[in-house]
Amino acid sequence: MDRRLQIVVDAHDPRGLGAFWADVLGYVEEPPPPGFSTWEETLQGWGLPEDRWNDAYAIVDPDGGGPRLFLQKVPEGKVAKNRLHLDVGQPGRARGEEPDKPAVRARADELVARGATHVREFDDPAQGFWIVLQDPEGNEFCLV
């Protein structure tokens, strides 16, 4: 059985939201398949009409360690709180290590400038420190 993990995100604008998440995660656009030098060439070669080129988009961890994030176009918008969300840590921070609160806040500010929405900051001695954000299409995630 294949045990790879892919995270799928419904979106109105897969490419736009994918670019946002690539920035959040330090990911890159998935390379086109063998035999093609660009995605435009690939989609043309597959005969996909240009108005469908933003139906899906994928980003990957450039180091190959993280899961693939696949964004697919859907007609409906998000209407309720996520039942699943991502916790995104700071690069170089080990699990269990205290967060650098100013660095987490600065990163949150950067992501707000890229289209995220600041929802709430938590700083609880028993549970820890994190900031809840929403991506440009309203999906909640936490910076930890």
Rank of each mutant, 00 (worst) to 15 (best):
L86V: 00
L71Y: 10
G47D: 04
A80T: 13
Q90W: 14
A56E: 12
G65W: 06
Q90G: 01
W53C: 03
N54M: 07
D51G: 08
L43T: 06
P49S: 09
P49H: 12
N54S: 12
Q72F: 08
G89L: 06
R83A: 01
G47I: 08
N82R: 12
G89H: 05
D61S: 03
A58I: 05
L48Q: 12
A56K: 09
E76L: 09
A58Q: 11
D87G: 05
Q90E: 04
R52S: 12
D61Q: 04
D51C: 00
G64S: 01
P75V: 12
D61W: 00
I59L: 10
P49F: 10
V79G: 05
K78Y: 03
G66K: 02
W53F: 13
E41W: 11
P49K: 14
I59G: 03
Q44C: 03
G65A: 11
T42R: 15
K81W: 07
K73S: 10
H85G: 02
P49L: 14
R68Y: 05
A94R: 14
W46P: 02
H85F: 01
L86F: 02
Q44S: 13
E50D: 10
W46D: 05
Q44K: 15
L84Q: 09
L86E: 00
V60N: 01
P91W: 00
L43K: 15
K81M: 07
P91T: 00
W53Y: 15
G66T: 10
I59S: 07
Q44M: 13
L71Q: 09
L86M: 01
R93P: 00
G92L: 06
R52I: 05
L43N: 10
L43R: 15
G77D: 06
K78N: 03
G96E: 04
L48R: 13
Y57N: 08
P49Y: 12
P91K: 00
P49D: 11
E41F: 04
W53H: 13
P62F: 04
D55H: 12
L86T: 02
K73C: 10
D61M: 01
R95H: 04
E76S: 10
W53R: 09
A80V: 13
E76N: 09
L69W: 14
G65S: 11
A58G: 08
G96T: 06
Q72M: 08
T42H: 15
D63N: 04
G45H: 14
G96H: 10
G47V: 12
V79H: 03
K73I: 07
G45W: 15
A58H: 09
A58V: 06
L69H: 07
Q72V: 10
E50C: 01
L84S: 07
W53L: 11
V88P: 00
V74W: 13
G65K: 14
L84C: 02
Y57I: 11
A94G: 02
Y57G: 08
Q44G: 10
N54R: 11
P75R: 15
G66R: 07
Q44W: 14
P67K: 11
G96K: 10
V60P: 00
Y57V: 05
D87S: 07
P49I: 14
I59Y: 05
L71R: 08
L43D: 04
N54Y: 11
P75A: 12
G45P: 14
T42W: 15
